[in-house]
Design a protein around this nucleic acid. Sequence first.
DNA 1: AAGAACATCAACCGCAGAGTC
DNA 2: CGACTCTGCGGTTGATGTTCT
Length: 242
Amino acid sequence: METSLKRGSWSVEEDHKLITYINKYGIWNWSQMPKFAGLSRSGKSCRLRWMNYLKPNLKKGKFSKEEEESLLHYHSLLGNRWSAIALKFPGRTDNDIKNYWHTHLKKRVSEGIRVHQTTTDQNDAPAPLDQKLQPAHDHMNVSYSAGHDILSSHDITSTSSDHPAGVQFRADDNDDYTCSPGTIDDLQCFWDQLYPFENLEFGNNHNMDMFSDYVFQDSNNDLISSYTFYDNNCSWSLPSDP
DNA sequence: AAGAACATCAACCGCAGAGTC
DNA sequence: CGACTCTGCGGTTGATGTTCT
């Protein structure tokens, strides 16, 4: 059966493989994807890593006061339905929100300490972030369009000549753009192009030249260092290892 | 300076629901 | 309709970093 699936923290190389694979082939089947992507990870692990860390447009860094208030508000309405709450926070994942709740807000709420009233008067309730910033759906469209841009950059919205046997890539109007992994030859070609000198062996970090050190500011004006992965005019933000 | 205690957050686990055959 | 697979969710853990004594 499954022999020694890797666990624990993801390396830069693994992140790179996953990003590059999804960039090229999209998300088609999490359970099958790891072996095609050259990863010794479970599909679950890959999905989690992508959703919580590698996916474009994820917002990292501290929660703003506004977000904190909204989180308190939405938790009072929705309870521990983290995924539902996360929909109200563009760029935040359910895991982020869950973690933030447990580490910052849970104790405060249990102690009855609030920075501001959030539920006693609906008029005083913080305006939902999806109203203040942009509708959650609009945000998601941003995410989608990022994915679509990537896909279109590879001309995979139509049947590609280098993907025979009727393989057709497509970009769906849902969260995860999907397509097939292509043929074995395609896969070999994909990795040959990606790592022409190493044949999937990572003896050094020269692949990191695909990442450029990049610093930006989040909504709190906190400086965030990241690696940005450039490929065909598409940029992917890969937060640096702590 | 060193160890203990605490905080943070990435990652794992088990389960449930949806979809497919 | 039941078995099976896949995906997503929420709870929890554990490694690492930070602060305190």
